[in-house]
Simulated assay, not measured.
Amino acid sequence: MAFIELEGVEKTFTVRRKRGRFTRTKDEVRAVEGLTFGVERGEMVGYIGPNGAGKSTTVKMLTGILTPSAGRLRVAGVDPQKERVRLAQRIGVVFGQRTTLWWDLPLRDSFTLVRRIYRIPQDRFEENLGRCVDQLELGPLLDTPVRQLSLGQRMRGDITAALLHDPEVLYLDEPTIGLDILSKATVRRFLAEVNARGTTVLLTTHDLQDIEQLCRRVMVIDHGRVVYDGGLEGLQGSDGAERTLVVDLAGPSPAIDVDGARVVRREGDGERQWLAFPAGRSAAPLVAAVAERYPLVDLSVREPDIEDVIARLYRGVPAQAT
């Protein structure tokens, strides 16, 4: 049995809509439809999709906030809806646009309240807090009221609060949203270390650099269904995806003409050219052909832009899971 397990999970909401002056109708909106997947203990999985795809609904069902309309769902062998209190001791949750900290209290006091809520032993609390404060650079902020923190500082505080009780699984919903480059780097580095210590992580995000830097496995969800589940390499190499060979030549040149690739961009008088070729093909024959026929100075291979690949999935172009 997987550590996190969903089998045929569905979630339907009833929405009341106004029709005319005095009439209202009820419409059913299916947020999640036939969702089936498993996550093994210790995995870090990227769970991505467009707005309204069902990502947040899935996380809320996994935490027990929402009850599935159909299907079976287990986290560490526990039914989240039937045993919410028991499960709460084993999970941590961070919603990027909603804080779990106390707005008017200093950050330090929020952490103390978390300790009391989860009944964390003092020595364990001090050890976990010290590690988080050190790695997330929160020391100078501990006596600052939460309302005075920047978004990046508050996010680091929320992640700390979610980890103080040593959860076995951590759900992250947009943990880097709105953060500057340095804050994102700090958060990503810390999350990688948390996962390396054995914590299972399910990460939903619109920032694909989060996925590239943290996750070996990616699930893409659209209209409540998983449309891709596999490695990042498989997503990059999906049907229609292209790699790019960037070629620097010794002098001006017309468009490079070699089999299996096409020039998509030229710079200057052709001294630098970009050649697109199928992501599933080896670059070696193409490199050899260019080197044989043109005065080559340098070259590099660029992987497919994941945003473009995922956009193709949203438009209904199939990808093959690894």
Rank of each mutant, 00 (worst) to 15 (best):
P140M: 11
A70L: 00
R74F: 12
D180Q: 05
F125Y: 15
H206G: 10
M219D: 07
L136G: 11
S150W: 10
E28P: 00
T186I: 12
V246S: 06
R315C: 15
P304I: 12
L107C: 01
Y294E: 06
L235S: 07
R119Q: 13
T63F: 07
T186S: 13
N51R: 03
M44Q: 03
R17G: 01
R19T: 02
I159C: 09
R108C: 04
R197L: 04
D134E: 15
E292A: 13
E233N: 12
E126D: 15
G268I: 08
T23A: 05
T204D: 09
R225W: 06
V94L: 07
L313Y: 14
Y47I: 09
A161M: 05
R74V: 06
D257Q: 15
V301H: 02
L87E: 07
V226H: 02
A289M: 07
I306R: 10
R72I: 02
I120F: 11
L172P: 08
G92Y: 02
V45K: 00
F125T: 06
Y171I: 11
F125W: 09
K82Y: 06
R21G: 00
G8P: 01
R84Y: 06
R17K: 10
G130F: 10
L136P: 12
G20W: 00
K55Q: 03
V309W: 14
A161D: 10
R30C: 07
A241D: 12
I4V: 14
L6N: 01
V227W: 01
E303T: 14
A291K: 04
V94P: 03
V187K: 13
R21T: 00
F37G: 01
L235T: 09
L142T: 03
F125R: 01
S282T: 12
T14I: 04
T63N: 04
T36I: 06
Q81L: 08
D257K: 15
I310P: 10
V45C: 07
R116K: 12
L191R: 05
L35Q: 02
R197H: 07
F111R: 01
A76S: 09
R72C: 01
E242I: 06
R216W: 03
T176R: 13
P254M: 13
R119F: 03
Q320M: 15
P80V: 08
R302P: 05
F125M: 07
G52I: 03
Q153W: 01
T67I: 09
R72W: 10
D173Q: 09
A321D: 15
A31I: 00
R147P: 13
L62Q: 04
V75G: 05
L101H: 05
H206Y: 04
Y171M: 05
L73S: 05
L164S: 04
L191N: 02
R197Y: 03
R217P: 08
L214S: 08
